[in-house]
Design a protein around this nucleic acid. Structure first.
Length: 202
DNA sequence: GATTGGATCGCCT
DNA sequence: GGCGATCCAATCG
């Protein structure tokens, strides 16, 4: 496994990566590195599971019921963090996609922990790597992301995304239906890396 | 103003 | 596999 102390040489994903079709972004994020820096330290994980939320015409997307204080970020440009509280106790992290007129986003559902492992273990009170980032609420907790990062650019941080080492052509991507929703339950908009033991479920 | 249910998780059986 | 925790926005009245 590579070392993760040479961040300056990594290739940052810029606005143009996110300002594309949401399904494309959702699939292309697999294998990329999600990076977070905080006062406690830096954590990094490889993206292994995502879901696409397509905008106004997707009944499961928060923006389908109009613009509110909560979903406001999705109505802006691509490449911004959309973070919200779910079930009164967990946060979900999304990155906005597509163009300014399409309030869509990709939900980050699972990571393979790569760096800052002890910090993740401390934040999660779990030892096993598979228990650190195998779910949307878990990865937010392991990465130390808080609600006050809602609306921040993922090209500036604290969350950023970088090119990974995997060749996108060689990734084995499984497509399934999304988890935990009650509308559009049969839309094939969840994506994960087939061989990864770090996904939230199969 | 009150009720309802949700893009979840961890503990229990 | 089931369920309780716990808050907010949307919905209904």
């Amino acid at each position: 496994m590579r070392t993760f102390n040479n961040f300056s040489k990594w290739k940052l994903l810029k606005e143009d990566f996110f300002a594309r079709n949401t399904v494309e972004v959702s699939k292309n994020l697999l294998g990329k590195y999600m990076y977070h820096e905080s006062a406690e330290g830096i954590t990094v994980g490889k993206v292994v599971e995502t879901e696409a939320y397509l905008g106004k015409d997707d009944p499961a997307c928060h923006s389908a019921r109009g613009r509110t204080m909560r979903n406001e970020v999705m109505f802006g440009p691509a490449g911004y963090a959309y973070i919200y509280l779910i079930y009164g106790m967990h946060l979900c992290f999304n990155v906005t996609t597509d163009n300014r007129h399409t309030p869509a986003a990709v939900l980050l559902r699972a990571l393979e922990p790569l760096s800052g492992l002890d910090l993740m273990r401390k934040r999660r009170s779990k030892e096993n790597l598979k228990d650190l980032c195998s779910g949307p609420g878990k990865l937010v907790q392991a990465m130390g992301i808080s609600l006050n990062e809602n609306g921040k650019s993922v090209t500036l941080g604290p969350v950023r995304f970088f090119e990974g080492q995997d060749n996108p052509e060689e990734l084995n991507i499984v497509t399934t239906t999304r988890v935990g929703i009650s509308q559009a339950v049969d839309w094939p908009l969840r994506f994960y890396l087939k061989e990864s033991p770090f996904v939230s479920r199969r």
